[in-house]
Amino acid sequence: MRVTAFTQLITVLAVTALVFILPVQLVSFVLVVELVLLLYIRHDRMTMAAIGALAVFTGMMILLQLLFRSPLETALAGGLRMLVMTMAFLCLLAATKIQDIAQALVERFRLPCEYAFMLTTALRFVPDFLADSAVTLDAQSCRGYSNRGNVFKRMYSYLVVIKPLVMRAVAKSDTLALSMELKGFGANTYKNMKKQELGTGDYLMLTIVFLLSTYKFWVKYI
């Protein structure tokens, strides 16, 4: 059963709100669901690394809260909530193509197509940008630049790679703009895509989200 990007977006947005509404037990249950879901969709190295990074980050958050003398329980609950929230986005990214998310944003949320396009294009150029920055760093180190020394010195000297990279990005964006012109980018771009029609899966999912969101309301009557 497939769920469209629209429903997924709604769900993720709902989850970010739900973590504050639902009791901790339910939130932990959501976390388990998320983990199972994520590992079901993808279980490559990248996903594992992302989960690991999130876990470490959550741990740090909890420690930070403890440092500020929050009770242990609050700190743990806070960390859990944050983990559930970020994990939801991770699931979204793993399950859906960015292109579909962009389309849903334009179609259903009336996001201007330029912004949606920026979202996808920025992601498209990340690997290129990383490759370029590696070359720039190598080129500068061959001219005597060294990143040894203390953190501040290193941060400062890292500036040497920024300028060539920015200039390169500007040159690239000029070609990119021409290319978009040639390919007729405009309002039609997303309009003409195959519509993401809602199916049974979507309605089922949206119902669950609705029920959970109104949890506070109906729990009184049961």
């Binding site: 080129a139 180190s141 061959c142 005597g144 060294s146 060539p164 390169r168």
Partner: peptide
């Protein structure tokens, strides 16, 4: 060694000049 240590003995010129002009 790292490249910076060798820079006054070996010069290395990369393919894409745009990526090093600062």
């Amino acid at each position: 060694k790292e490249p910076a240590d060798l820079a006054d003995r070996i010069g290395y010129v990369f393919q894409n000049p745009d990526l090093q002009i600062l």
